[in-house]
């Protein structure tokens, strides 16, 4: 027993043993996360290199309207004669940006509110929590519609609307995590050794409470893309002639019987991106919290 203190755990270089690295390793070994990541990487590459990959300009009139998929136009042409494949590839840019930006619009204020509410407690918490409850009383799509109605249609307004509509969910999740973390002895110790509240929240509570938040945010990217496309479908988001998936689906809905591809391929694009984010999110969840992992 005399040597108990002299022994250090065996292991490789330090960076690989940090809790974050351990979770990352678990994540990369997760099967559905791998599938999601491959899918997602493919979409990101398509989005970034869209002008070089797409065979035509997204708004270029290349052929007769409503041509079925063929060797010249793999996914066919739309109601105006634009190449659908090129439009779907360019649409990835808008959808991915929309997904990430609206999540940031929701995550940053939501997490901040939740962190402050959970840490401060008392009246601050009561006020913020009632605000959250009030917002949660609306279904988020209704909330987004109200915001769009106020701000007017447009892709940026869609991002703001979808983001703001998700603020209460982030806030509630963060608050719960903070409440659990703040009574941990290491947080009390952090106060005792002289940390001020900002440092306690930033360095001691947040890093130990953000796991579920990251998972939720990842799942929420897919959801935001879906809601954003839905709003565009309804005519409240992207305006013609933008190559946006929701809008493209809407453009084909009147001719669904004669030209099914116009709506179908943008729809499939939405589906695959959303599924990719969900798979990655599931993998993250299992990596962050191994207890929920199936045996």
């Amino acid at each position: 027993m005399a040597t108990e203190t002299a022994e250090l755990p065996a292991g490789p270089a330090v960076a690989r043993r940090s809790p974050g690295r351990i979770a990352l390793r678990r994540f990369l070994r997760h099967r559905s996360a791998q599938v999601g990541l491959v899918l997602l990487t493919a979409w990101v590459v398509l989005a970034v290199f869209a002008p070089w990959i797409a065979p035509y300009e997204p708004n270029e009139l290349v052929s007769r309207a409503r041509q079925a998929p063929s060797a010249d136009h793999w996914l066919g042409t739309d109601h105006l004669g634009r190449d659908l494949l090129s439009r779907v590839i360019h649409g990835a840019r808008i959808s991915l940006v929309l997904g990430f930006v609206s999540v940031i619009f929701g995550l940053v204020p939501g997490a901040t509110l939740g962190l402050v509410a959970g840490y401060a407690g008392g009246r601050v918490d009561a006020v913020i929590s009632r605000l959250i409850d009030a917002m949660l009383a609306f279904p988020s799509i209704i909330l987004a519609l109200i915001i769009i109605a106020t701000l007017g249609p447009g892709i940026l307004n869609v991002m703001i609307a979808v983001g703001v509509a998700s603020v209460p969910e982030y806030a509630r999740l963060m608050r719960g995590q903070v409440l659990a973390a703040r009574t941990q002895p290491y947080v009390e110790a952090a106060w005792l050794v002289g940390n001020d509240p900002a440092r306690i929240m930033g360095r001691h509570i947040f890093p130990n409470a953000n796991g579920p938040l990251i998972v939720f945010a990842t799942l929420q990217v897919g959801n935001a893309i879906l809601v954003g496309a839905g709003l565009s479908f309804l005519g409240l988001g992207a305006q013609p002639p933008t190559a946006e998936w929701g809008l493209m689906s809407a453009e084909g809905r009147d001719v669904l019987a004669r030209a099914w591809w116009i709506s179908t391929f943008p729809g499939l694009a939405i589906l695959s991106v959303v599924v990719a984010f969900n798979l990655v999110g599931d993998g993250l969840r299992d990596a962050v919290d191994p207890r929920t992992r199936p045996a």
Partner: peptide, 16 residues
């Protein structure tokens, strides 16, 4: 200062 009862929850797991 204080020494806590539970040595597992009294250290911040994210800090070396």
């Amino acid at each position: 200062q204080m020494i806590f009862q539970d040595p597992f929850s009294s250290l911040n797991p994210r800090m070396t």
